[in-house]
C-alpha cells in the first residue's frame, strides 16, 4: 500500500471523495432516504450562512476548548504514566492492565461519575482526556521499549544510568510513536468532548447535534455533524504532518 501512497494514491483519493460527494448529493436530491437526508450542497450552504455564524462559532469554540484541554491533560498524564512504567519496570505490567481496563470502560458509562465529581461544564474535557490518554499511553510505552538490544548494551557498557538512558535513548526513540499516538488521540478527544456534552453541558457541537436531532432541524443536524467531523479530520491531518516531521528528524 505504501508504494501507491504517492501520485496515483492521491488521485484515487480525490476521485473517491468526489464520488462520495456526488453519491451524497444525488441521494439527497432524489430523496430515496427520506426528508432527513439532505443533499450535501444544502448542508454546506447552511454552514456558510452568516445568520448561523455566531451559533456555530460559539458551539465550535466550546467543543474545541473542551477537546483541546482534554487532549492536553490526557496526553500529559499518559506520557507521565508511560514514563514511570519505563523507569519502574516492576509496576509496568499492572499499569498496562490498568490502562487497558480503564479504556475498555464505555465512555458513556463514566457520565454519572463525572457529573458527581465535576461540574457539568468540566465533564466534556474530562471524558475527552480519558479518550485521548489511551492511544498516547500505548504509543509512548511501546516507543520507550522500541530500542534495539545493541543500543541498550552499548548504553549499559558505557555506564549509563536509568535516567540517562531514558533521556538519551528511550525518549528520542519513542518520539515518532508518540506523535502517531497524538494523531489518533485527536479525533478521540473530539468524540470524548461531544459525548461529555450530552450529559448536559451548556453549549457545544454535541448539544447542537442532539437538540437539532430532537427538534427535527435536519440541516442544522447535518451541518453540526459535519463541523464535528471537520474538526476531527483537521486535527488528525495536523498531527499526521507532525508525525511525518518527527519521523524525518528521528529516523
Amino acid at each position: 500500500m505504501k508504494s501507491q501512497t504517492t501520485g496515483s494514491g492521491l488521485m484515487y483519493g480525490a476521485i473517491g471523495v468526489v464520488v462520495l460527494g456526488v453519491v451524497w448529493e444525488s441521494a439527497g436530491r432524489s430523496g430515496v432516504l427520506g426528508t432527513t437526508f439532505p443533499p450535501v450542497s444544502d448542508v454546506v450552504t447552511y454552514l456558510a450562512d452568516p445568520a448561523y455564524r455566531t451559533l456555530f462559532g460559539r458551539a465550535v469554540g466550546a467543543t474545541f476548548s473542551s477537546a483541546a484541554r482534554g487532549f492536553l491533560y490526557g496526553s500529559a498524564v499518559a506520557i507521565l504514566l508511560a514514563t514511570s512504567g519505563a523507569v519502574l519496570p516492576a509496576a509496568k505490567e499492572g499499569m498496562d492492565r490498568f490502562v487497558a481496563s480503564v479504556h475498555a470502560i464505555p465512555l458513556i458509562a463514566l457520565g454519572p461519575l463525572f457529573i458527581v465529581l465535576l461540574s457539568r461544564t468540566g465533564t466534556p474535557a474530562a471524558i475527552a482526556g480519558l479518550a485521548a490518554a489511551f492511544p498516547v499511553y500505548v504509543a509512548a510505552s511501546a516507543g520507550f521499549d522500541d530500542t534495539s538490544q545493541t543500543h541498550r548494551d552499548v548504553f549499559t557498557v558505557m555506564g549509563s544510568g536509568r535516567w540517562s538512558r531514558l533521556r538519551h535513548l528511550q525518549v528520542p526513540a519513542a518520539l515518532p510513536g508518540i506523535a502517531d499516538g497524538l494523531r489518533l488521540a485527536a479525533p478521540a478527544a473530539v468524540l470524548g468532548a461531544i459525548l461529555g456534552e450530552w450529559f448536559g453541558a451548556p453549549r457545544g457541537i454535541g448539544i447542537l447535534i442532539v437538540s437539532s436531532m430532537q427538534n427535527f432541524q435536519i440541516n442544522q443536524l447535518w451541518a453540526s455533524a459535519m463541523l464535528a467531523a471537520l474538526i476531527s479530520l483537521t486535527a488528525f491531518a495536523l498531527f499526521g504532518a507532525l508525525e511525518r516531521f518527527v519521523v524525518s528528524r528521528i529516523r
Binding site: 548494551d153 552499548v154 538519551h168 535513548l169 528520542p172
Partner: peptide
C-alpha cells in the same frame, strides 16, 4: 565497546 551493529543513535 563497539559491536558489529554500529548502534549509533540515528537522530
Amino acid at each position: 565497546v563497539a559491536f558489529q551493529d554500529h548502534a549509533l543513535l540515528p537522530w
